Simulated scan of single mutants.
Amino acid sequence: MPTHRDLKVWQLSNALAVRIHELTRGVSVESGADLVDQVRRASLSIGANVAEGRGLRTNAQFRRHLDISLGSAAETDAHLAALLDRDALSARDVFDLRDQLATIQRMLVALRNSLPAADRPPTRASAASRPPTPAEAATAPPQPTPPRASAAPRSPRR
């Protein structure tokens, strides 16, 4: 059975987290050691949520974790910007990391959009606007039939 390790997006997000860890090893306290911990955690969270979601039972749960991964990717990007602003990382390194991050984000969105929506519970709007399923129709109380509109008497023409 395929696991999260078989997903290209997980492989790329894991490689990104490793690369961020390598590039932030020498960051000094003055230039952003507090951000180093944050960017490392956020980048690890991208792949970790893909893995967790892949291990759950439904597509809806997997979609939710892919959304969380997208949030972690955005957080990673924000921390990279802060590290660049503090001159803790070079512009070239941040550009390369952001390029990898953008690829991962596109892949997360594509994966989320490719999941079948069959296990998604209907929303109120969609349930109200669709005809009842046979099971719903069988268990629904009988609806009164509306009275027929009778033809109103016409007034004579003059």
Rank of each mutant, 00 (worst) to 15 (best):
D34N: 15
W10C: 11
G26I: 01
S43V: 01
S129A: 15
R86N: 15
A135M: 10
S114N: 07
R120V: 02
S126A: 14
A17F: 12
G32F: 10
A33I: 07
V29K: 14
Q105T: 15
S43R: 06
V36D: 03
L84T: 15
I104S: 00
G47Y: 00
Q38V: 11
L101V: 05
L56A: 09
V50D: 03
R98L: 09
R5V: 06
T3S: 11
A135E: 05
S114H: 09
A152M: 12
R98F: 04
V29F: 03
E75A: 00
P142H: 13
N113A: 12
V29C: 05
A151W: 05
A88Y: 06
S43Y: 07
T76Y: 05
A60Q: 11
A110W: 02
K8D: 13
A137L: 09
L101E: 10
S45C: 09
Q143D: 10
N59M: 06
Q38T: 13
R98H: 13
R25C: 12
E75Y: 01
A73L: 01
I104T: 00
R154Q: 09
D93N: 14
S90K: 12
T24L: 02
P134A: 11
R120G: 07
R5H: 10
P121W: 05
V27I: 09
S72W: 00
